[in-house]
Design a protein around this nucleic acid. Sequence first.
DNA 1: ATTATCATGTAAAAGGTTACATGATTTG
DNA 2: CAAATCATGTAACCTTTTACATGATAAT
Lengths: 183, 183
Amino acid sequence: MLKFALLGLLHYRPLTGYELKQIMDESTSNFWHAELSQIYATLKRLEQDGAVESHVEPQTDRPDRRVYNMTSAGQAALDGWLSTPVTKLQPGKDLVLLKLFFSAALSKEAVLAQLRLQRDLHRMQGDRYREHTTAYIQAMLDEYPHLTADGVYWEQTRRFGEMYEDMYVGWIDQAIQALEGAS
Amino acid sequence: MLKFALLGLLHYRPLTGYELKQIMDESTSNFWHAELSQIYATLKRLEQDGAVESHVEPQTDRPDRRVYNMTSAGQAALDGWLSTPVTKLQPGKDLVLLKLFFSAALSKEAVLAQLRLQRDLHRMQGDRYREHTTAYIQAMLDEYPHLTADGVYWEQTRRFGEMYEDMYVGWIDQAIQALEGAS
DNA sequence: ATTATCATGTAAAAGGTTACATGATTTG
DNA sequence: CAAATCATGTAACCTTTTACATGATAAT
């Protein structure tokens, strides 16, 4: 699926692997992320498959950049993927829940401490979606006005992040209460 | 991490790979799942590492069962893992959000149809947590009364599933409204 | 008759992380 | 003086999925 994330971003404008990583970290990392090494490897494969093309832009004071452009084949692949509905639920993974499931072996105080730590992290992440991500989307739309229609969708995914983190914090609050109650 | 999920379940009682799969599908699949082939492979590795032991129980009318028991080394590994706090947010992946992010290229009706489909799926999953999973936890506690303390934690993860699905449905409702509004 | 359940596994491929390697410029 | 940023990539490893293989019994 990473390949579609990359094609989706290259549909906006030509980008380097390094830039793709930066943009993903600011925008899609909420629901899709990747390491730089994986991005470079995937771009290579996309080029072999004819979905993207690249050329090197020499630079003097910085390392040369390899800029990727989408081909019409790549655009067709992206369109096909976008119009295929997801008809099943995607099973997720969450380490904290997995641990909690088996935490009867731990002292209650240890569990509560771990839950409070997670609550702080999710609170901070929620704030980040509210503040930083909102500003980032606005800055993108200011810089690239032709992407205004996309902004509506970006905002929906940002909003999901915000709601997810709020739900997570609320759940932890309830879990802490339930555990404290079950003294 | 699968290995800890397996150790966690084997801590309750000796189990076969097949049973581990069934139990995970009913309990942890909410936040951790695995295919049978991966479970068998992981059990093999756990045995090589000395965390579990196995013996074959011959059966006449059914295939023989290979039953796994946790060793004290396995118990120590599980305890160590459980008491190590998770200090970072786990980045998640969601195909639906990834697609939605890039959906400005699609017709609004196509997007709305995909969102409605997802809403149905998440509503059904929420109902499943409320009904089936609640009953499953109760049946487990009835059958294995010594796991009563664990039941509190199982219920918290079940509750997370319920809240997650409710949040997802609520988010889709809002997204549909936002898209319909932006005619 | 066909499908589901019980029960085991192997093998190949895909997807993803971590570590390594390089090297100049800029910021603190 | 150290760390971060820019910019590329390779290699090894780990995790996960999908496909294949077998074969009996029980249920629809």
